[in-house]
Design a protein around this nucleic acid. Structure first.
Length: 293
RNA sequence: CGCGGGGUAGGGUAACGGUAACCCGUCAGGCUCAUAACCUGAAAAUUGCCGGUUCGAUUCCGGCCCCCGCAA
């Protein structure tokens, strides 16, 4: 590995998307000096304390990792200590999951950059990818912006437009956008660190904001628009997932839709998981549960 | 010990203290110009594994393995 000695950064992230970005940066020859992520949390049916994917990545790549629960004085001091003296010139944030206080984002000399999977100022907030699918916004993209105190509000450093032809499931969309974001970041990072890249204020009057989704958002109404339902299934494929209820054996059970297609103006459900059962094809489901649309 | 559901013929479901039913599929025959349609018939399940209760368990109880929903 012949690192560009001028590109020294630390990475903040906590999700699978963060890992995709880390991997892409690594492929581009960019490995962070250290990584900051969120603490281990109980996961799964047994609520086993599990390190998040970013921490796992950092460990297997032998990169020092911090997992601060909050940015108190101790945390800030640690970050400052690791950053001073030119050892780190910029922080990179990709899907960290929490708002970073100004006391953190201003630590490095070249401040903090964020990868956001939308064409800011459109789709600020926590769910830009899902909302783009739900809205059928096929002209989308990734943005590199400098973080300020407000959510997805800082000046734009770079942007790349991406046109979608059809909607993949959320996870695939996320991976694709994460890679695009990482590529864009890698291409501009040297210039940014050198201070040669201008930033541009967002047009705040055109901003739109997305919200976090809740379980209930995933309920499918088959009497509604089929293409809309399809987009819902794709957008919520990972979470909260789309589902409907049926009465079966004098019991109300939840049926989750795990796979669907939309061709010739028609929604076709391919696979489902009935509550208490494992994944089966929709045709098998219809036969066994005597269900029809 | 977070809460809960489930493992029954090739696939999906049902039933119930007395050895299992339905749908699809498979095979054979029939009807049709023909068919993925329709009719008739057949093959196919030691009801996840181990132990217990019982005259008798798929059905009740305990343990184990595996799957899934909720919650986080």
């Amino acid at each position: 590995m012949n690192h560009e000695s001028s590109i020294k950064f630390a990475f903040f992230g906590s999700s699978r998307m963060s890992v995709v970005v880390l991997e892409e940066l690594k492929t581009a020859g960019l490995t962070p000096i250290f990584v900051v992520t969120t603490p281990d949390k109980p996961q799964g049916r047994k609520l086993v304390l599990t390190p998040n994917v970013v921490k796992t990545w950092a460990i297997s790549n032998r990169v020092h990792v911090f997992d601060f629960g909050k940015f108190d004085k101790v945390a800030i001091d640690s970050l400052s200590k690791e950053t001073t003296g030119g050892s780190v010139s910029v922080f990179i944030v990709a899907s960290y999951g929490k708002i970073l206080p100004s006391s953190v984002i201003n630590i490095p000399p070249r401040k903090t950059l964020n990868i956001h999977p939308s064409l800011l100022p459109k789709y600020r907030g926590p769910s830009p990818l899902q909302q783009a699918i739900l809205d059928d916004t096929k002209r989308t993209g990734v943005t590199i912006m400098r973080i300020d105190e407000q959510m997805d509000h800082g000046p734009i450093v770079a942007q790349k437009e991406i046109i979608m032809n059809e909607w993949p499931v959320y996870e695939d969309f996320e991976e694709m956008m994460a890679k695009e974001g990482a590529h864009l970041l890698a291409s501009i990072l040297p210039e940014w660190i050198a201070g040669k890249l201008p930033e541009m204020e967002q047009d705040h009057s055109k901003a739109t904001t997305t919200r976090k989704f809740i379980k209930e958002d995933g309920l499918i109404d088959f009497t509604g628009d089929q293409y809309k339902n399809f987009r819902k299934i794709q957008a919520f494929h990972e979470w909260p997932q789309s589902y409907f209820f049926i009465d079966h054996a004098s019991r109300k059970i939840r049926i989750k839709i795990t796979s669907a297609s939309f061709t010739n103006g028609k929604l076709e459900i391919i696979k489902v998981i009935p509550e208490g059962s494992s994944e089966i094809s929709f045709s098998d489901f219809q036969k066994g549960y005597k269900f029809s649309l």
